[in-house]
Design a protein around this nucleic acid. Structure first.
Length: 634
DNA sequence: CCCAATCTAAACATCT
DNA sequence: TAGATGTTTAGATTGG
C-alpha cells in the first residue's frame, strides 16, 4: 500500500513537474537559454529530474537577478557565479527587459515552489512515518498561482541547500557546514523516500527534528523578530535556526545579537520570510490533500469509512513497526485500521515495512528484539495501541510491537479473574493476534520462558492445576526502571512497524497520556478499539486460520459482546471504566488462589469451550477498555 | 564497546 | 510413554 502510495506520489510529482514546465515553458526557454547552454547539457535524453534541475538553476539565476535589480535590495551578488554570467538583461531593449523581468518573476516563483515542494516532501515523508503532526490546512490560504500541490520533485538535499543558500544570498552568516537549510539530516529520504519512504528514511533523531530538521515547524509560529526571554524559536542547540543560517551562538545573547545584525529587516530577510510563509502554506495545503487521500484509501480498504477523520490523528503515531507507531487512541500511525476483509490477508507492508510478508513467517528471526520495549519503554498503554487496530492485529499476520511479557500481562489482566492458565494465555495470543496463529512452538516456548523468567508473573497452584497471575508491583517496578532509564526517545521502530520511529513512539506515548479520558469513554473505545482481550473462546484456535476471521464491525461486536457469557462478569468484576479496576491488577497472587474452582468453570467455557462462531472480539472490547483504563491509570 | 532487554532455541525436569 | 507445563541456559539481536 505504501509503496503504491509512493508510486502514486512519484507519478504525481512528475505530473506536477510537467505542469510546472508547461506553465511557463516558453518563458523558461526564453529566459533560461543561457542557463541551459552554460549548463552544457547536451545529452539527448534528459530525465525529468535533470530537466527540473536545469529549470531550477535557471529559475535560481533569474530570481537572483531579479533580486539584485530590486532597488534598495540588500542582497549582494553571489560572487562567483554571477560574475561568470554577466547580466544580459542590461543589454536588452527595455521592452525585452520588462518581459524578462516578468519571466524572472515566474522563475522566482518556481524556485520558491520547488523549495516548498521539496520541503513538503520532506514533511510528508515524516508524516508518513508518523513523525509529524501537522495542523490542518489554514483556511483561506491559497496556493501560489500556477502552483500545483503535488509532491515535489526529487531535489537532492544538496541541491536544496544550494537553493537556500542562493536565496539567502550566498553564504549568509552561516557558520559551520555552509548553513544551508538543514535538510541533510534525512537527506536520503528526499530522493529515495519516494519509492520507499519507510525504509529509505533514516531514523530521525529527536535532535534532528529539534534542530533544524523541521525549521518549518519552528517557524510556523515565529514572527520575524519575535523574541522571548531566554528562548527563541529561531534559536536552538546553540545554533541560529534561521533558514539557511546555522550560525553558532554561544549563548542567547549572542544569538540575539546575531539575529539583529544578520537577520535584520531587509530585503533578504523579507524574502526568506516570504519563502517560509509559502512553504508553510504549501505544507498545510498538501497536508489536507494527503489527508483526503488517506481517507479515500482507508475507505477503499474498508476501514471504517464511517469515521470521518476530519482531523485524523496526526500520523505521528505510527509505530513502527511496530505498531508502534501508533498513536494512543489514535492508531498506529500508519496502520490501516481494522481491515475487514479477512479473505485478503492484510499486508501492512506499507505500514510495517519490516514486517515479513504475510504468512511468510520468515520474519520471525529478524524480529528479534525489535519490538521490544515499545510499550514498556514509552509507557505506551498496550491496549490503547492495540485497541484501535484490534482488527488489524487480529487479521493481519503482523507481529505486534510488544514484548511477550507485555502481552502476557495484558492477557492476564484482561481476564475476568486476572489469572489464566498457560493454555488460556496461548488462546489469548492466537485469538488476539493473527501472527500467533503460526509458529506455535516458537512463541509458546517464548511465552513459557517469559512466565518463568519474569518475577512479575506468579504461578499459582490451583486445584485443577496452575494459573498465572501478574504481580503488578513487580511489573511496574520493572517498567519504571526502563522508563527512567531511557529518557531519549529516539529510535526507529521500524523493525516492528517500519513506520515509526522512536519519535513516533514518544509522540504516541505522549498522546496516549493525554488521551486517557478518551480511553475511558466507552463510545470511543467501542468504535475504535473493539476489544482486544477478553475471554472469548478460543474458537479461533482450531478453527479459523488466519485470514478467516470475520471482521465484525466494532459496533456489532459490541452488541454481540453483551451476549457473551463473560461480558457481564467482566463488567462487574472490573468495574467498567472505573479506576477501581486497577486494584484488581494489583491483586496479590493469594487472592487469585482463593477462587480457583469458579474461575475454572468460567474460564473454561469462555476460553476453551466454546462459542464457536460468535466473534471473539466481543468480549474483548470491553476488556480492552478496561485494560486501557487500568494501564492508563497506572 | 559494553550492557541490558528481548527473543529464539533447546535441554531438562516434572506432572498429567 | 507422550505431551503439556516449567525451568534454565545459551546465543543472537537491538538499542541505550
Amino acid at each position: 500500500m505504501m509503496q503504491e502510495s509512493a508510486t502514486e506520489t512519484i507519478s504525481n510529482s512528475s505530473m506536477s513537474q510537467n505542469g510546472m514546465s508547461t506553465l511557463s515553458s516558453s518563458q523558461l526557454e526564453a529566459g533560461s537559454r543561457d542557463g541551459r547552454s552554460s549548463a552544457g547539457d547536451t545529452s539527448s535524453e534528459v530525465s525529468t529530474v535533470e530537466l527540473l534541475h536545469l529549470q531550477q538553476q535557471q529559475a535560481l539565476q533569474a530570481a537572483r537577478q531579479l533580486l539584485l535589480q530590486q532597488p534598495g535590495s540588500g542582497l549582494k551578488s553571489p560572487k562567483s557565479q554571477d560574475k561568470q554570467r554577466p547580466l544580459q538583461v542590461k543589454q536588452l531593449p527595455q521592452q525585452q527587459q520588462q518581459q524578462l523581468a516578468a519571466q524572472q518573476l515566474v522563475f522566482q516563483q518556481q524556485l520558491l515552489q520547488m523549495q516548498q515542494l521539496q520541503q513538503q516532501q520532506h514533511l510528508l515523508n515524516m508524516q508518513r512515518q508518523g513523525l509529524l503532526s501537522l495542523p490542518g490546512p489554514a483556511p483561506g490560504q491559497a496556493a501560489l498561482p500556477g502552483q500545483t500541490l503535488q509532491p515535489p520533485a526529487g531535489l537532492s538535499p544538496a541541491e536544496l541547500q544550494q537553493l537556500w543558500k542562493d536565496v539567502t544570498g550566498g553564504n549568509g552568516t552561516g557558520g559551520g557546514n555552509g548553513g544551508g537549510l538543514d535538510l541533510s539530516t534525512n537527506n536520503s529520504s528526499s530522493t529515495t523516500s519516494s519509492s520507499n519512504p519507510a525504509k529509505a528514511s533514516p531514523p530521525l533523531s529527536h535532535h534532528s527534528i529539534a534542530n533544524g530538521q523541521s525549521p518549518i515547524l519552528n517557524h510556523r509560529r515565529d514572527s520575524l523578530h519575535e523574541e522571548s526571554g531566554g528562548t527563541h524559536p529561531l534559536y536552538g542547540h546553540g545554533v541560529c535556526k534561521w533558514p539557511g543560517c546555522e550560525k553558532l551562538c554561544e549563548d542567547f545573547g549572542q544569538f540575539l545579537k546575531h539575529l539583529n545584525s544578520e537577520h535584520a529587516l531587509d530585503d533578504r530577510s523579507t524574502a526568506q520570510c516570504r519563502v517560509q510563509m509559502q512553504v508553510v502554506q504549501q505544507l498545510e495545503i498538501q497536508l489536507s490533500k494527503e489527508r483526503e487521500r488517506l481517507q479515500a484509501m482507508m475507505a477503499h480498504l474498508h476501514m471504517r469509512p464511517s469515521e470521518p477523520k476530519s482531523s485524523p490523528k496526526p500520523l505521528n503515531l505510527v509505530s513502527s513497526v511496530t505498531m508502534s507507531k501508533n498513536l494512543p487512541p489514535a492508531s498506529p500511525p500508519n496502520l490501516p485500521q481494522t481491515p475487514t476483509t479477512p479473505t485478503a490477508p492484510i499486508t501492512p507492508m506499507a505500514a510495517m515495512p519490516q514486517v515479513p510478508s504475510v504468512l511468510g513467517g520468515a520474519n520471525v528471526p529478524s524480529m528479534g528484539a525489535m519490538r521490544r520495549r515499545h510499550s514498556d519503554k514509552y509507557s505506551m498503554p498496550l491496549s490503547s495501541e492495540i485497541a484501535p487496530n484490534y482488527e488489524f492485529y487480529k487479521n493481519a499476520d503482523v507481529r505486534p510491537p510488544f514484548t511477550y511479557a507485555t502481552l502476557i500481562r495484558q492477557a492476564i489482566i484482561d481476564s475476568a479473574e486476572h489469572q489464566l492458565t498457560l493454555n488460556e494465555i496461548y488462546s489469548w495470543f492466537t485469538r488476539t493476534f493473527a501472527y500467533f496463529r503460526r509458529n506455535a512452538a516458537t512463541w509458546k516456548n517464548a511465552v513459557r520462558h517469559n512466565l518463568s523468567l519474569h518475577k512479575c508473573f506468579v504461578r499459582v497452584e490451583n486445584v485443577k492445576g496452575a494459573v498465572w497471575t501478574v504481580d503488578e508491583v513487580e511489573y511496574q517496578k520493572r517498567r519504571s526502571q526502563k522508563i527512567t532509564g531511557s529518557p531519549s526517545l529516539v529510535k526507529n521502530l521500524p523493525s516492528s512497524l517500519g513506520y515509526g520511529t522512536a519519535l513516533n513512539a514518544s509522540l504516541q506515548a505522549a498522546l496516549a497520556e493525554t488521551s486517557l479520558p478518551l480511553l475511558g469513554t466507552p463510545g470511543l473505545m467501542n468504535s475504535d478499539a473493539s476489544g482486544l482481550l477478553g475471554g472469548s473462546p478460543p474458537g479461533l484456535l482450531g478453527g479459523s486460520p488466519p485470514g478467516m476471521l470475520s471482521g465484525s464491525p466494532p459496533m456489532l461486536m459490541q452488541s454481540a459482546h453483551e451476549e457473551l457469557n463473560g461480558s457481564l462478569d467482566h463488567l462487574d468484576t472490573n468495574g467498567h471504566g472505573s479506576p477501581g479496576y486497577s486494584p484488581s491488577a494489583h491483586m496479590p497472587p493469594i487472592h487469585v488462589k482463593e477462587e480457583p474452582l469458579n474461575m475454572d468453570d468460567d474460564d473454561c467455557p469462555m476460553s476453551l469451550v466454546t462459542t464457536a462462531n460468535h466473534s471473539p472480539e466481543l468480549d474483548d472490547d470491553r476488556e480492552l477498555e478496561e485494560g486501557n483504563l487500568s494501564e492508563d491509570l497506572e
